[in-house]
């Protein structure tokens, strides 16, 4: 399985709003902690080491 970078989330606007909502009212530190927990939960769900490595590489490249 390769990293899926094609659109894959139904209701993208709704998801994005939910993501921001989760951070509502949090201090920067609490937000960073939430992101870390979220990332770990999602990474476990994916579970495929090769995909995770690809995802890390894609994220590290950022917008370049």
């Amino acid at each position: 399985m390769a990293l899926n970078t094609a659109p894959n989330i139904p209701d993208p606007d709704g998801f994005y709003a939910e993501l921001l909502n989760a951070h509502d009212g949090l201090s920067d530190d609490d937000s960073i902690a939430l992101n870390a927990r979220l990332l770990l939960i999602l990474a476990n769900h994916i579970g495929d080491r090769a995909v995770l490595t690809e995802a890390l590489a894609a994220a590290s490249k950022g917008d370049t």
Binding site: I32, A33, A36, R37, L39, L40, I41
Partner: peptide
């Protein structure tokens, strides 16, 4: 700081 954040995220979860 970020490795501390991840460490504690792991412990919390």
């Amino acid at each position: 700081k970020i490795s501390h954040v991840f460490r504690n995220a792991v412990l919390d979860l």
